Structure formats: C-alpha cells, structure tokens
Computed example of a mutant assay.
Amino acid sequence: MNLMCPVCREQLILQEKTWRCIHQHSYDQAKQGYVNLHVVQHKHSKTPGDTPEAVAARRRFLSAGFYQKLQQKIVDVIQPLDLLSAIDIGCGEGYYTQAIAQQIPHLIAVDIAKSAVQIAAKQDRQRQVTWVVGTGAILPVQDQSLQLCSSFFSPLPKAEMLRVLQPQGYLLVATPAPQHLLAMRHALFDEVKPHEPEKFVQQLAPEFQLLEQFLICDQLQLNQQQLQDLIAMTPYAWKAKAELRTVLEQQAQFSVEAQFCLYLFQKSSGPIR
C-alpha cells in the first residue's frame, strides 16, 4: 500500500512489523494489526475523535443489523466500478469498511479515534485492510495513489482527497438526509432543523462532479438498549439537554426512521480553480 510518512511525506514500506520510510522514520504495527500515524505535532487533543463509549455503542447498534440497507447500497454502488485501491476516511470500528473490503483488494482505513481503529483491526482477522490511526487533515497516503475515497458521516477534507485520488478517481459520501432520525431529534431538542445534505454537493464542486445520488430509508424499531446506543453514537449525546435525553432513554420501545443520502462523485478532469 502507498502509505505516506506523516513527517517527511515519503512512502512507507512495511518491514516485518514496522512501517519505515527512506529517512528512517519508523512506526510499529500494533498487535491488533493497525499502525498509528497520528503524530503528536498534528494532534489538537490528547484523545481525539469519538470516545470509547461512543465507539462501543455504535458497534453494538450496527452489530444488531441496523443501517444494513445503507451498507448494502454502498456495496451495490462500488461493485460495478471494478476498483483496485481505496481509502475509507473516518472508518470508525469498520462496519462499512469491511463491506468495501469484499469489493476492493487494496483498502486503507483511517480514523482519528484510536479506540475505534483498535476494534476494527482486531476484527479483521484475515488482514484484508490496512488500518491506520490518522487524521483526514493529512491523509496518510501518497499523491494520486488511489481510485476511490469514501467518507460516511465524516468530514470531507476536499484538498486532501483531490491530492490522493488518481485522475478520474471516485468519491463516495454518505450523510444524513433531511428527515434522518426526525422523531428522535424532536424528543431531544426544542428546535429541530432539517439536515442539509445538498451543501456537500455545493462544497465539492467544481472539482468533483456528481454522478449519482440515492435516498435510503429504513424504519427502525428499537428497544431501550438500542435506543440508548443510537443516542450515544451520535452528536446528539452531548448536544441535547440532559433532562430531555434522560426522558427519552427511559422509553421501553421507540420507532424512528433513518434516512441517508448517498452520493457518488468523480474527480473532474478539468483545471482546478
């Protein structure tokens, strides 16, 4: 894989269990199978990214089969592209990454949350994916080395994605649709504004051309633990008023609709403005 040294930006080569560049900067591969390329000079906090509690909640929730419709649609979109290399930005504990790995042989997955990458790498017993602790602000791969960037509910580092993608490379983005988890948001907030997925399309133009877009809807029937996990894995966990969250978490059953927008873009061949 074309991993890049975060210090000097030269290519990293795996020698036994250490990633090393020509300047002898070295990064040991952890026993779980990941490498930490989030160097201290790029950190803005001691433990960046999702908390271990949020990661654990998301893993329980997704393991129960929720959001499977989105996972399958991601596979359906990627399959006909017939790609060899990709990076999954903000991979979390690897729910969508593992599905992509069945379609793309050379796959790098990066997340800023070390606890999430640890779980993802530990689950990947066949070592199908190169798991990296790192930041989207400096993607740990070399220039124009990949055919696809994917980002699901994660920030979109536009300049970095343009740098690492080959000409005509693809970008796959999943983001909440306007009515996503609307009933839950009404229970947690006094004022609810619809999500604005179209803003991503505008932000990515003109360097990325929109090829396809899809709306995925899924009605969720949650028990109390699943509801608590869904709240804990979203930003609502710390944005909502504590008293409203407490009332909602006491519900024994809860019905809510998940709605996602999935966008497939292609890197424009024209000049970058």
Rank of each mutant, 00 (worst) to 15 (best):
Q32P: 00
L188K: 00
Q79G: 15
K114P: 04
W131C: 13
D124G: 13
K31G: 00
L188E: 00
Y263T: 07
K114C: 10
I231C: 02
P235A: 09
L139P: 02
R20M: 04
E198M: 08
R125M: 05
I231F: 01
H44G: 06
A120F: 00
L215P: 14
S45A: 10
L248H: 02
G134R: 03
H106Y: 07
I108N: 00
I138H: 06
A183E: 14
C21L: 12
M4T: 12
I138A: 10
L171M: 06
A57N: 09
Q15Y: 08
A187W: 02
W238K: 00
D28N: 04
V164F: 11
R273L: 15
Q98R: 09
I231L: 01
I138Y: 13
Q24M: 02
R163I: 03
F214H: 11
Q41T: 07
V247L: 12
P140K: 07
M184L: 15
D82V: 15
I104M: 07
Q71C: 08
F254P: 11
Q224K: 14
N223D: 05
L172D: 14
Q128M: 13
A116K: 02
Q68D: 15
Q118A: 05
I104C: 04
R127G: 14
H195F: 11
A109W: 01
Q251M: 14
V75K: 08
I87Y: 09
L156G: 05
V40C: 02
Y34V: 00
P52A: 08
M161W: 11
R127Y: 01
V247M: 04
A120M: 03
L188Q: 01
Q219S: 09
Q250H: 09
E16M: 02
R60Q: 05
Q123G: 12
Y67S: 07
Q41S: 13
E212Y: 14
Q259Y: 13
S45G: 09
Q251L: 06
V35M: 06
G270D: 15
A120Y: 00
E93D: 04
S115V: 03
L215C: 07
Q123N: 13
Q41W: 03
G134A: 07
